[in-house]
C-alpha cells in the first residue's frame, strides 16, 4: 500500500513535469544576453545634478539616464542642450500617433487642434526638468484652469 502511494506520487510529479517542461524551456531563452549598446560617454549622476535636473515622474520611474536623451552631447550635464521633438518621438512614436491616443479629449486636443493640427513642438508645453506649462491658456485661460478641456500638462 505504501509502495503504491509512493508510485502514484511519482506519477503525479512526472505529469507535472510534462506540463512544466515546455515552460521552463521557453523561459531559458529569455535570459540570453544582447549586445552592449551604451555609448562611450557616461554621466556620473551626482545628487546635486539629480536635484538640479529632476526627471518627470513617469520618466524617473523608468530610471531613464541623461544620455538616453542627451545623446552625443558629451558627459557634462551643465553643457547639455535642450533636445528637440525628434528625441521625444524616438520613444513616443509620431505626433499623429500621440494625437490619436488622446482623441478622447476631442476638439480641444492640443496634439491635434483646430489651430495647430499636429504641428506644435512638444516643448511648447512639456518640459522635462521643470514644471510644464499649457500654451493654450494664453487665450483659453478659463477652459484650462477649470479642467474643462484637459488636465494639468504632464
Amino acid at each position: 500500500m505504501k509502495q503504491r502511494a509512493q508510485n502514484i506520487f511519482v506519477a503525479l510529479c512526472l505529469s507535472l513535469c510534462f506540463t512544466l517542461l515546455p515552460l521552463t524551456l521557453k523561459s531559458g531563452e529569455v535570459t540570453s544576453s544582447s549586445p552592449d549598446l551604451k555609448g562611450r560617454e557616461t554621466v556620473t549622476m551626482t545628487q546635486e545634478f539629480k536635484e538640479k535636473y529632476p526627471l518627470k515622474r513617469v520618466h524617473a520611474k523608468l530610471s531613464l539616464e541623461c544620455l538616453f536623451c542627451h545623446d552625443g552631447q558629451g558627459n557634462n550635464p551643465e553643457a547639455f542642450k535642450a533636445v528637440r521633438e525628434k528625441t521625444c518621438l524616438e520613444c513616443h512614436g509620431s505626433k499623429e500617433k500621440i494625437a490619436q491616443r488622446l482623441d478622447f479629449i476631442g476638439k480641444p486636443n492640443p496634439h491635434n487642434s483646430i489651430h495647430d493640427g499636429t504641428r506644435l513642438s512638444c516643448d511648447e508645453c512639456h518640459y522635462e526638468h521643470k514644471a510644464s506649462i499649457n500654451m493654450c491658456a494664453e487665450c483659453h485661460e478659463k477652459e484650462i484652469a477649470t479642467n474643462m478641456w484637459m488636465r494639468k500638462t504632464p
Binding site: 502514484i8 511519482v10 503525479l12
Partner: peptide
C-alpha cells in the same frame, strides 16, 4: 506498470488541464 499508469494519469491530467 505503476510508472506507466502514472504517466498515463499524468498525460490525462495534463490534457484535461490543458
Amino acid at each position: 506498470i505503476f510508472l506507466s499508469i502514472g504517466i498515463g494519469i499524468g498525460l490525462i491530467f495534463s490534457l484535461v488541464t490543458y
